[in-house]
């Protein structure tokens, strides 16, 4: 199953037939394993890695460091759930070190994100402070290089 996951992780669009060939198992077995992985929650979703800069849609992304006061009973999860619920939020991680939650947010403009932080995020009860870092360029995302093409330096012998 590890190998199947690795293949899907590198390219989720491989067909069941292609996966079966590469793993040397039957297509039925591929379908069975994928169903089991989906059911157990190991596979959460299938997504494309998109370079929005190559499209007409303008987006701005920021990574926001949140310091929060964990609440009695629910700890960090209660606040994480609140933050997750915002549709602008792409990812939420609980961090070790100098701050508590790392929140990745994408909007259409700097103003969008500024207003999201000022009006919605920082006003949550448990949030003590925020530090917003705007992403200037994406060089690599989800294992995919965005900077230049992957040059093949190999020559022919």
């Amino acid at each position: 199953m590890d190998k199947l996951l690795k293949l899907l992780d590198s390219n989720a669009r491989l067909t069941d037939a292609q996966l079966a060939t590469m793993l040397d198992i039957s297509e039925d077995e591929v379908r069975r394993q994928i169903a089991a992985l989906e059911k157990s929650g190991a596979i959460r979703a299938y997504k494309a890695v998109i370079d929005w800069d190559k499209t007409d849609r303008q987006t701005v992304t920021a990574i926001i460091e949140l310091k929060v006061t964990p609440r009695r009973d629910v700890g960090f999860e209660g606040i994480a759930e609140q933050v997750m619920a915002f549709e602008e939020v792409e990812s939420v991680y609980l961090m070790s070190g100098g701050y508590d939650l790392s929140v990745r947010v994408t909007g259409r403009s700097f103003q969008d994100i500024a207003s999201f932080v000022a009006k919605r995020l920082s006003t949550l009860d448990s949030v003590i402070s925020t530090a917003t870092h705007f992403v200037l360029r994406r060089y690599k995302e989800s294992d995919v290089m965005f900077l230049g093409e992957n040059q093949d330096e190999r020559g022919i012998m």
Binding site: K3, L7, A17, Q18, T21, M22, L23, D24
Partner: peptide, 13 residues
């Protein structure tokens, strides 16, 4: 080797 092997099967097919 394991990696080449899955590519091998893929390409032959």
């Amino acid at each position: 080797r394991a990696d080449y092997d899955s590519r091998r099967r893929f390409i032959v097919r």
